[in-house]
Design a binder for these strands. Structure first.
Lengths: 222, 222
DNA sequence: ATCGAAATCTGATTTGTATCATATGTATTG
DNA sequence: CAATACATATGATACAAATCAGATTTCGAT
């Protein structure tokens, strides 16, 4: 989403944004914002790792997204009653640029092309979100959670198969919408079949191809 | 979404839209568009009833929305690869106004405020969509499907408790994300407890209050 | 009216996953 | 470096819902 500003706003407006944005720091394990809070604005991650989760009716929480450098937080608080529907929680020390709703509003209303592409961005997010409705077998969902973990945070080094930041089993469960026991069992199986290697709490992804297949049940039809 | 055009486009642009829109008719039981087709544009329902469903990996389909007079179809095809991710199928003879992507595009890019509010509209849809992630007990989901049925299509008359158009058990199942056997069983229970009355294939909603409670598990916590 | 197909209903069985129980390993803190 | 809190692991059990199987009703077509 940041690229939309770069691409579709004039230089004057970019300066306007730069002038009004402010930098904030968060320690590991703190909230950037919490579900229910009034929407203050957008956060662009300069550096760090954040998990975004949804508080459910029974107070359990569901992890819906992982974000790191360059990603945007808070846009889901736009519209409606202008409250964040989700919480953003830092997994590491994190630095963000903050753009207030007011600033954003002025920019969006003044830049038709920007608004237009922003609209397309949300339309696309909506499509993606809708694609998640189906209840897949949990094993597939766990595989997908692992993949998302890898995609969002990458590996320790280019050559390494070890995740740069391994989510806890609990977080993986929250992402997959299941219990941590089930995650542990699924991981144990992936481990046994050589798809991953469990190394204490850390996880190495040995066979990305097979993991991808596990995450896409269309292809794993018997 | 139609109201956004009315509200945020100038009169000249409204005329532009009216000039370029075209009217189409569909018989009961036909597709307005099918998942995978290239996005042609938007459809505004003038009269009729439509179900919108998502084709799943296993070729089963999941009903995500019901639409009738005044509702908009096809906006989910915007962005990304410009294909409709979903299918729209008429439950009755239906008349629509069609606005092509090209026309829409010109209008959106020329009307900053329109784009802006459209963006907000999508942002809101995204929020709503995300709220659906949780796996509720199916009985709750069936109740919700019934409610949606009532909300979308209303009752036969103001005084009547009989739904103007009762979805088939299969469609209710598709909406609730379960099997039709389970829907039948849930309905049988609602029938026995006096929440609804089953009248052949038709359904009467006798106790709206209790049905609402059944649909909101937050409140039915034991 | 009669036929046949499709939709609805009900019961029996299976299955995947949550839940419960408990153990081991691994960080954190005084 | 204990002490203890927390994450991970694994087995046993319970349960909700899918699947399978078959009966009955509804409704359009002839």
């Amino acid at each position: 989403m940041k690229f939309l500003i770069d691409k579709y706003c004039s230089n004057e407006w970019k300066e306007f944004i730069n002038f009004h944005k402010e930098t904030r720091q968060y320690e590991k394990g703190s909230y950037v914002f919490e579900a229910g809070e009034e929407t203050q604005g957008l956060f662009i991650i300069e550096s760090g790792k954040v998990k975004i989760s949804y508080k459910q009716y029974d107070n359990s929480s569901r992890l819906i997204r992982l974000a790191n450098d360059g990603d945007i937080l808070g846009h889901r608080g736009f519209g409606g009653n202008w409250k964040y529907p989700i919480s953003a929680f830092t997994l590491e020390k994190t630095k963000v640029s903050f753009i207030s709703v007011e600033v954003f509003d002025v920019v969006a209303k003044a830049n038709a092309l920007f608004s237009y592409h922003l609209m397309m961005f949300f339309a696309e997010e909506l499509r993606k979100s809708e694609a998640k409705i189906k209840h897949y077998p949990v094993k597939n969902l766990v595989a997908r959670a692992l993949l998302d973990n890898a995609r969002a945070f990458g590996f320790e080094s280019d050559k390494s198969a070890k995740l740069a930041h391994t989510l806890t089993r609990k977080d993986l469960a929250s992402k997959a919408g299941t219990t941590y026991e089930t995650v542990v069992r699924s991981l144990a199986e992936f481990n046994k079949t050589g798809v991953i290697k469990i190394d204490g709490k850390e996880i190495h992804i040995l066979d990305m191809e097979r993991l991808r297949k596990l995450a896409r049940p269309e292809e794993s039809q018997k």
